[in-house]
Design a protein around this nucleic acid. Sequence first.
DNA 1: CCGATTTAAATCGTTCGCGATATATTGGCA
DNA 2: TGCCAATATATCGCGAACGATTTAAATCGG
Lengths: 149, 149
Amino acid sequence: MVCFSLYSAANAMQQAYRPLLEDLGLTYPQYLVLCTIWTARNPLTVKGIGQQVHLDSSTLTPLLKRLEASGLVIRTRDPEDERQVRITLTEAGHALRDRTAHIPACMLEKTGLDIDTLVQLQTQISALAARLRNPTDTAPAKPPRAANI
Amino acid sequence: MVCFSLYSAANAMQQAYRPLLEDLGLTYPQYLVLCTIWTARNPLTVKGIGQQVHLDSSTLTPLLKRLEASGLVIRTRDPEDERQVRITLTEAGHALRDRTAHIPACMLEKTGLDIDTLVQLQTQISALAARLRNPTDTAPAKPPRAANI
DNA sequence: CCGATTTAAATCGTTCGCGATATATTGGCA
DNA sequence: TGCCAATATATCGCGAACGATTTAAATCGG
């Protein structure tokens, strides 16, 4: 089934990233979060990052703390709204971006596919993910167990 | 990039499985391993399972111990070769298979796609995964554009 | 102005996934 | 036979993911 392919390909993808990222002391999720921060105009909140990468605070808070411990970002409470935490890059965090410049090309080569094919594949996979995330169920065939009480 | 789609779709896929599997007390990787065991003719070894699902003993041993603790499988050293561990189903393990019969159809519906599209997508994703898993690729039918160095 | 609700992060416990390493069994070879 | 490499599993530590819960701040209704 597609599910196993997806699961397995995602694992293989992280394995392929590992040698490229370990020199930088990053994991793939950390790299992903940093990419999000790098391309943002203003300092993001934890929630803001989460909306882009589809992760929530219980995953992101520890990850961001590790990035902070590595000296790449700083976490500060937003003075406007003390519930929020703003993530800003340190000098090292900014500088690291340059050291990742080669990564997309490296990964592209590892896939052995051309860009058009990959873009098309990405479109389909993203659409599938959106479907799975969204219970747009036209007919939920779930037994109505414990509907009340 | 495709990588993020893949990563995110795999997470979403596991989320979609969760409500279906939690009634059975299973996680997706556990379900995947059980599917492998269910369809095997003879009792598999840990390595045999690992080759099918692309996981190794450091992941599978704890997982199989949890399945054993749940009373679904039994782990026994192969008397022919005491290095190996044979995984056999208990009665409960066999019986559980029937309770998973609806799952593929449920997941199919959640994708909102037709089978042909999914099969085609699966083929592409599997090919991509195979490529990513294989670092020393001599690029079959690919132009040798900076393959080495 | 105040209590109730909503919202944002953080925390906790469990399960993966895997690199590195340990342990034990087997097989080969002198 | 005895030693050594190869093989199979297990163990350990770390970093995700996520459900469930907690804490604290903001907002809303009266």
